[in-house]
């Protein structure tokens, strides 16, 4: 099995993470359909009740805490579907995970490099 974080700060989506995040990712996958999105928008708590999220996962979703969702086994390709229902630019999601504000993230991760 791939060891977590052999590469620093880089969570490979291997068995431990896929196991931990299964319900969270399944909840997000449910937003691929118009019905799922409508249910989420109409009553987020009731929609989340359909899935066996841990209390931590549920809190992270409610808070749109992207770093925490990933830490708890969320994979970005699934949880991104939350950002389709509650619009959040991908670069803000990146910045949140990097622990930076957006401008700092753009400068140090994306900007500087392109100008360099």
């Amino acid at each position: 099995m791939t060891s977590p974080d052999r590469i620093p700060d880089t969570p490979l989506f291997d068995r431990p993470r896929a196991n931990a995040g299964y319900a969270l990712n399944k909840m997000a996958m449910g937003l691929s359909s118009p019905e799922g999105r409508a249910a989420f928008l109409a009553d987020e708590d009731a929609y989340l009740d359909r899935f066996a999220l841990t209390p931590d996962q549920r809190a992270a979703v409610k808070a749109r805490d992207w770093a925490e969702m990933v830490r708890l086994g969320g994979n970005l390709f699934y949880i991104l579907k939350i950002s389709a229902v509650d619009p959040t630019p991908i670069r803000e999601i990146g910045a949140a995970q990097a622990g930076m504000d957006l401008q700092e993230f753009l400068d140090t991760r994306l900007g500087k490099v392109t100008n360099g």
């Binding site: 620093p8 970005l76 995970q97 991760r109």
Partner: peptide, 11 residues
């Protein structure tokens, strides 16, 4: 896209 190294690129 994921983790604290999010935003890493290597032109």
């Amino acid at each position: 896209l994921q983790g604290a190294r999010a935003g890493f690129i290597n032109p």
